[in-house]
Amino acid sequence: MRVLALLLAFAVTGAQAETVRFITCPIYRDADAGKKSGCWLADDRATGKRYDVSQAPSKPDWNREVLVEGTIAQGGKEICGGIVLEPVRTSILPGACTRQMLPAENFTGRKFVLPKRNISPLSVKRDPPPPPYAARSFHLFFDFGQAFVIYQYDDYLLDEAVHWIRAAKPRAITVTGYAATSPAIVSGRTIAEDAAIARVRAAKIGEALVRLGIDRKIVTVKWQRDAAPIDVPEADGLAEASRRRVDIAVAF
């Protein structure tokens, strides 16, 4: 029931925003607009279209295949030489690629701006989030096949969760790791996550909570395969990516 409603919700948003999902070898365009400014491009071989995937929170490796999942940005300017995907995720896959770098040509690239999801130094004092504190869940999302807590995305989400939990002082926390184990066909290839990654994700976040000062005794760690998508703001409307996650469920 709930899953169906979610899928419907995605279908509705999908009507306005077109999403793409494909596997390819990434191309680095050395458009030099300063630090961290280079462009990442990805050609969808099925359609022949070139996309600009530079806005992914974790970026490609020019030696490795990449799974692209993104939404075509409305009115995105072609400053890298590709159709802009945003939001977008790029997951590095094991397959090898020949490294390809294009010169800037006439493309300016983007000046780096600090993403909205970034954590403050410890020296910055923060007020605790105000009550009421009721049962709720937090979510972290992962790249395909990875359990890495993505910099300036997951670390921020984790930090927000812990900040709230510290103030709310819940009775119990359940950390559930998910893996997208149901096979999907992408760019003519069947891909599915290994079920074991669900456990690695969960264990990692469980350990992270403890390192951030949460009492180990109130944390339960579980894992699950066949993950369904969820539609929460932190997932940025990327249904497929939202299957690969950890839920932190907080109870009182």
């Binding site: 280079g38 992914a56 974790s58 970026k59 020019w62 030696n63 993505i150 910099y151 300036q152």
Partner: peptide, 11 residues
């Protein structure tokens, strides 16, 4: 790797 700055990154 694995931080997500990309390979390569200009800096």
């Amino acid at each position: 790797s694995p931080i997500g700055f990309g390979n390569p990154v200009r800096n």
